[in-house]
């Protein structure tokens, strides 16, 4: 918007992206990989699911992302009595003009932080998920396009906890990545304890990017060259998940597309023009772990399965 006049400069974009990473690392201490994965997810035009126990900084991370990227953002705290209209918006009768007006809900923003998404009822969840996939809202026979860019960063607590509705596979598939934050290590935890309140730091962050830059970078990511050799590798990975008897379901073509886009974004973050098998391997656990499910209840977690998949699948020469 305000940057639209300035000529697109890939080097400047990359530089500001690098600074954004640095700033985010000052807010979320000791989680460089997760920060890069979050950025890669957004650069790949995907939605992000952050899953972890309360209090490890999920909301802070989402908040910081919105701040640094210079995006308009809304936060919705999901609860079990949240209704679809609370997210999407509602039609209100305007007495003066004798007609219904659509009041846009919080979803009409550039970054929607859906906190504790698994606390809402399935009906509400699916309303959100539809918006995520279609990037538009239909209400009273009218279709409203969502702003560009549009991201959903959802957080959820592991669903063993009380009062949660686990997201079904079909909806999990719509998140490009799922990441865990985990507890910080001792040194970073000490810094965290010693340091000031995170919210104050957040308030002091100046936006380093803008929606226009973000869109431009997304286009650059999508334009990164993907060699046939890389496609061979991705296909080999996908084929292996479909033939493995210990998996309930193999990866979907959508997962394959997401994998390639995420790898492109990872390469872009690394300022490379070629997408390498290492990029695929770096994003693979985050992209596929929430889509894989072992056949047995006591089976290994999706991340473990993803790591085994990497080691079992040879990179074509």
């Amino acid at each position: 918007m305000n940057d639209a006049a300035s000529p697109p400069d890939p080097a400047a974009d990359a530089a500001s992206l690098g600074r954004a990473v640095e700033v985010l690392e000052t807010v979320i201490l000791g989680k460089p990989v997760q920060i890069r994965l979050c950025l890669a997810c957004l650069l790949a035009r995907g939605h992000l699911l952050i899953e972890d126990v309360p209090g490890v900084g999920k909301t802070t991370l989402a908040h910081a992302l919105a701040q640094v990227l210079g995006l308009a953002w809304q936060r919705v705290q999901f609860t079990s009595d949240l209704l679809p209209a609370d997210i999407i918006g509602v039609s209100v009768f305007d007495r003066a003009r004798q007609r219904f007006d659509f009041r846009q809900g919080p979803v009409f923003t550039q970054l929607l932080l859906a906190d504790e998404v698994n606390r809402a009822s399935p009906r509400t969840q699916s309303a959100l998920l539809e918006a995520m996939e279609e990037r538009q809202i239909s209400a009273d026979g009218t279709t409203y396009a969502l702003p560009e860019p549009f991201f959903v960063v959802a957080t959820q607590n592991p669903h063993e906890q009380l009062g949660t509705f686990a997201l079904p596979e079909s909806q999990l598939d719509r998140f490009l990545m799922r990441i865990h934050l985990g507890y910080p290590d001792a040194a970073h935890e000490r810094a965290l304890l010693r340091g000031g309140e995170r919210r104050e730091i957040l308030a002091g962050i100046a936006p380093l990017l803008s929606p226009a830059t973000m869109l431009r970078m997304q286009r650059s990511v999508r334009g990164l060259y993907v060699a046939d050799a890389l496609l061979d590798y991705v296909q080999a990975l996908i084929a292996r998940t479909r033939s493995q008897p210990e998996l309930k379901l193999g990866l979907s073509p959508r997962a394959g597309q997401g994998l390639i886009r995420a790898a492109q974004a990872w390469a872009y973050l690394d300022r490379r023009s070629a997408v390498l098998p290492e990029d695929v391997q770096a994003v693979l656990p985050a992209v596929i772990a929430h889509r894989l499910e072992g056949r047995e209840a006591s089976a290994r977690s999706g991340e473990e399965l993803a790591r085994e998949l990497i080691e079992a699948c040879a990179v074509p020469a």
Partner: peptide, 9 residues
């Protein structure tokens, strides 16, 4: 080289 290693790794 392990089979799953890419050139950079």
């Amino acid at each position: 080289r392990a089979p799953h290693q890419g050139p950079r790794a």
